[in-house]
Amino acid sequence: MNAEELLRQYRAGKRNFSQVDLAQEILKQTNLSKIDLSQANLTEVNLSQANLSEANFYQANLNLSNLSQAKLTQANLRLTSMESTLLYKADLRKAQLEKANLSRAILQRTFLREANLEGSILFKANLQQANLIDANLQQANLTDANLKNAFLQGANLFQACLDHVDLSQTILTGAIMPDGTVIR
């Protein structure tokens, strides 16, 4: 399926595009809220500035995709693969990212307030200036991640792996650390 056909069917009221192959398609600045793209191949897709609020990406492949400035509030991204994906300034408030693979993803200035990242892989992810206030990062792997100038107030990092993480100038007030201590 190509982007034009997907948009035509979406405008006609269809929302279920589970397992569709849209690799390398351009869907930037589109409104696809509440779309079901579970288990879809979205490798190298351009969804920058798209409205994807409440969308379902369960087990989708979004590797190398562009989701910069996309609206993904309350989106289901559980078990999604987003290796090296560009999420610069994306809005992921209250998104479900449990066990998602965000290795080497660019999440600079991304809004992840109250997002659930439990068990997610953020190996070498760039989270500079990201808003992770009240986010759940329990058991997340943040090895070699860059959290410089990030906002982690009230975040839950219990049992998270923070090996070689840059936490310089990061705000951690009220955060639960890997060992269970709370930063005051």
Rank of each mutant, 00 (worst) to 15 (best):
V165F: 11
T143D: 07
K148G: 09
K89G: 01
S38F: 02
K34Y: 14
N156A: 04
F17P: 13
N41E: 10
S168A: 11
I183P: 03
F57L: 12
Q9G: 00
S53D: 14
N46R: 10
Q169N: 14
R8M: 08
L52R: 04
S18I: 05
H164F: 07
Q96K: 13
L62P: 11
N56T: 08
L22A: 05
F151D: 10
R184L: 10
N56D: 15
L162V: 02
V20G: 07
N141R: 06
F123I: 14
N61S: 11
Q159S: 14
Q128T: 12
Q169T: 09
T110E: 01
I171W: 05
D134F: 09
K89M: 14
L167P: 05
N76Y: 02
D36M: 03
L37F: 14
A160N: 07
D144P: 00
S38K: 01
E114C: 08
L22I: 04
S168M: 06
S120Q: 01
K124M: 08
I176P: 04
Q108S: 15
I133H: 06
L127K: 02
A70P: 00
L7P: 04
G119L: 01
H164V: 00
A90K: 03
Q24K: 14
N131S: 07
Q139C: 02
T43A: 08
D166Q: 09
R78H: 13
L152C: 14
A115P: 06
Y88T: 12
N2Y: 08
L132P: 04
N149P: 05
Q39M: 05
Q138L: 05
I26T: 11
I26P: 00
Q159V: 01
K71Y: 07
T143E: 13
Y10R: 04
N56Y: 10
D166K: 04
I176A: 03
T170C: 13
H164N: 15
S48V: 03
D179T: 11
Q153K: 14
E44A: 15
L22R: 04
M1L: 12
E44P: 01
Y58T: 05
A3T: 13
L6V: 15
Q19C: 07
S81C: 09
T30Y: 07
R11K: 15
T181I: 12
S53P: 03
S33K: 11
A3P: 06
N61A: 03
K124R: 13
Y10P: 10
N16I: 15
L97P: 04
S53C: 09
Q19W: 05
L87N: 08
L137C: 12
D134E: 12
K94Q: 15
F123R: 13
E5T: 14
L127Q: 00
F151S: 11
G154H: 00
N51C: 09
R11G: 03
L117N: 01
L142Y: 07
Q24P: 00
E114V: 06
I26K: 13
E54Y: 14
L117G: 02
